[in-house]
């Protein structure tokens, strides 16, 4: 919601090229290109093949989580519990399959069972969130906030705050090989895109996000749609956890703790509305690309993690400002 403190001003002349860029769906992609072009000369290695692969490796899991967030935001909710879901599923998966004390230590089934357990747990967490939001009529912000506190606490308690390492290679290969991680992320994105743009579920999702009461009167199974969105978010967070855990080769109870800003930031930078109804996979992809690129470049520049934190915070503010500016200029 844009606060127009001074009332609407007369239509301003916006140069047509800028206006076209601002209006475009690809605005964030243009910004990515600008960022890359602007930083590449000063940033050693930004344009190298190695870094390119590294960039994609960073992008894949973040994209997967952000896809789930996109679905939940479209339906008019928010899921703050995704990072804790990543941590908890990581820990649980590792406890199932690690080669020392794991439940299935040494079994050839360890890795597949662990992955299924992780996804199942993610889906279950999502279902819990969805049920609390729909059947108990609790605000999504508070539900997923308490879920975040609880699940993260649970992951830490479960492991007494220790990492669980020594995972089977059959598992770690999933996250550490871009050749595997990328197709997983890409197919998730493709599937979510198909659901959103072409399926009954996608239309229902948007309708509920725009106006749940209208949707209910029109015969849309509102509760089921909302629950499905949260389940999808939990599942995708768990899938991202598989990638992250594999990449790290260890189950960590604080895995993903730092990426909540990235997840929500990337989704919103892409253009998905926090008020529901509006959002697309392509937008989220651009948002994720933008943040990943920024993170990567700042790292290559040798900046400390707190500087990166400040810059990212600033960039998110700038993106939000840009979004308001475009709404004001173009809609006034």
């Amino acid at each position: 919601m844009a606060t127009m403190t001074s009332g609407a001003t007369g239509p301003r002349r916006v140069p047509s090229l800028i206006a076209a860029a601002l209006r475009s769906e690809y605005l964030v992609l243009f910004l990515c290109a600008l960022l890359f072009a602007g930083l590449a000369p000063f940033t050693p290695g930004l344009a190298s093949t190695d870094n390119f692969l590294n960039l994609l490796g960073n992008l894949a899991p973040l994209l997967v989580v952000a896809l789930g967030q996109t679905l939940v935001l479209i339906v008019g909710g928010i899921d703050l519990s995704v990072t804790s879901t990543i941590a908890l599923t990581s820990v649980v998966g590792a406890l199932v399959m690690n080669r020392d004390t794991g439940w299935l230590a040494g079994s050839p089934l360890a890795a597949p069972v662990a992955v299924v357990a992780m996804l199942g747990l993610g889906g279950l967490i999502g279902a819990g969130n969805g049920l609390a939001v729909t059947k108990l009529h609790m605000p999504p912000f508070m539900v997923t906030l308490t879920a975040m506190m609880f699940l993260s606490g649970f992951a830490i308690w479960l492991t007494q705050s220790k990492n669980v390492g020594n995972l089977p290679a059959a598992f770690t290969v999933l996250g550490s090989r871009p050749a595997l991680a990328l197709p997983i992320a890409a197919s998730s994105a493709g599937l979510v895109h198909l659901l959103l743009e072409r399926s009954l579920f996608g239309r229902w999702l948007r309708a509920v996000g725009f106006n749940a009461r209208t949707a209910h009167v029109s015969g849309v199974p509102v509760d089921a749609v909302i629950i499905a969105a949260y389940i999808a978010s939990g599942l995708l967070a768990a899938a991202a956890s598989v990638l992250y855990t594999g990449r790290l080769e260890t189950g960590s109870p604080v895995l993903g703790q730092r990426i909540l800003l990235d997840v929500i930031g990337a989704t919103v930078i892409g253009g998905t509305s926090l008020f529901g109804g509006k959002g697309r996979v392509l937008w989220t992809l651009f948002g994720v690309l933008f943040l990943t690129l920024l993170d990567n470049a700042l790292n290559l520049l040798g900046l400390s993690h707190f500087t990166i934190m400040m810059v990212k915070g600033g960039v998110i503010l700038l993106a939000a400002l840009l979004d308001t500016a475009r709404t004001r200029w173009l809609a006034a």
Binding site: L194, R198, S199, F201, R203, A207, F210, T214
Partner: peptide, 29 residues
């Protein structure tokens, strides 16, 4: 509770009868 104001004419009109145009497996429209 009559309309989704921000949604398009097409999306609003189709809302009640969407299911008729959906085909399994993914309920694609």
């Amino acid at each position: 509770d009559g309309l989704c104001l921000e949604a398009s004419v097409a999306d609003n009109v189709a809302l009640v009868t969407l299911g008729r145009h959906a085909r399994s497996p993914l309920r694609l429209l």
